[in-house]
């Protein structure tokens, strides 16, 4: 098992803020909109440095999505910022008609996704956003795993012409990806080559997959670990190449099983290479209040749950 280390834990939302700040300096067409969560989204630096290109819309997310769509008419590249719940479910029809169907170059940037939002509880803990967004034709869906990767993804999506959903979160997590690693939309990242099982993980579950891989290695199980930061378009060739070798799969994500990464991989494998698969995800349930760590344990999204899923799926080979 390849050894991964980190010097500090950082929140992915700060990676977004850092990336946006850099874009502000390098690309004069980048504009940003926020629905009264500038501090939470770490958009303060952009707002301070480029007040003419920052639009505070107040608590009116539907209007924010529409204004963003309009700003593209005139060549701007708008980045909208609010919590994942208010970035997707609350404004689904606005995104569908004014952004996706209209083919507008809007970047929907969503923080506080999933259970790790914590104490605010289920009203704010959206676990359906990846599914909602990936169903929209033409929408790119990205869920990076740490600060560095979120920063790189933020910068990369500005160069992509078309709508993008970028999902990140609130808690600090190990910042382990190289700060100079290029972010390629739709290109899976191989973290550890293995032979017995493939673990496909996304977002906050990527580090937990690494921890699981270490525990499995100690027991003599060789896990291939792949970071799927882009849910859509899925890196089909990377998935198939790995599964041809390992012949069984575990997926891991901070999302509902319905509509998430596991569902995308299962669809691909059902069509191309039927393979035993286990999914570490929230199973048709809302979240609740608690600390992020407590919630990840209660809803079975910890490294040990990945290890258990691997042990189960290997027996099904």
């Amino acid at each position: 098992m390849k050894k991964y280390t980190f010097t500090e834990k950082k929140d992915t939302r700060s990676g977004f803020g850092a990336g946006l700040s850099e874009l502000g300096k390098s690309n004069p067409n980048v504009v940003a909109l926020c629905a009264d969560l500038t501090g939470s989204l770490k958009m303060d630096a952009f707002a301070k440095d480029h007040p003419e290109r920052f639009f505070q819309v107040g608590i009116a997310e539907a209007n924010m999505i529409g204004i963003a769509a309009g700003l593209t008419i005139g060549g701007k590249i708008p980045f909208t910022g609010t919590f994942a719940n208010f970035s997707t479910g609350r404004v689904y029809d606005q995104i569908r008609q004014s952004v996706a169907y209209s083919g507008k170059n809007v970047k929907i940037c969503a923080s506080h996704a999933g259970l790790t939002l914590g104490e605010d509880g289920a009203t704010h803990q959206i676990l359906e956003d990846l599914g909602l967004m990936k169903m929209l034709p033409g929408m790119v869906v990205i869920n990076p795993c740490d600060f560095n990767q979120t920063k790189a993804a933020t910068i990369a999506i500005a160069a992509h012409d078309g709508p993008v959903y970028l999902r990140f979160g609130r808690p600090t997590v190990p910042n382990f990806t190289p700060s100079d690693q290029k972010f390629e939309i739709g290109k899976a990242v191989m973290l550890n080559e293995g032979t017995d099982v493939t673990i496909f993980a996304t977002g906050h579950l990527v580090w937990k997959a690494i921890e699981a891989g270490e525990q499995l290695a100690a027991k003599g199980i060789s896990a291939e670990i792949i970071n799927i930061h882009t849910i859509k378009p899925l890196d089909n060739s990377a998935v198939l190449a790995s599964v041809k070798k390992t012949r069984c799969v575990v997926t891991a994500e901070e999302h509902q099983m319905n509509g998430g990464l596991g569902d995308s991989i299962a669809q691909l494998l059902a069509r191309e290479l039927p393979t035993p698969i286990e999914m570490v995800a929230v199973n048709d349930s809302f979240g609740e209040s608690g600390t992020p760590d407590q919630l990840m344990t209660k809803y079975r999204l910890d490294a040990i749950n990945i290890v258990d899923a691997v042990n189960k799926v290997i027996k099904r080979k």
Partner: peptide, 20 residues
């Protein structure tokens, strides 16, 4: 310049275009 039909969205879009 925009899809419309689902009502209520055009004014927001127009504001965006006006800001641009």
């Amino acid at each position: 310049r925009i899809a419309s039909g689902s009502l209520g969205q055009g004014l927001s879009v127009a504001i965006g275009a006006a800001l641009a």
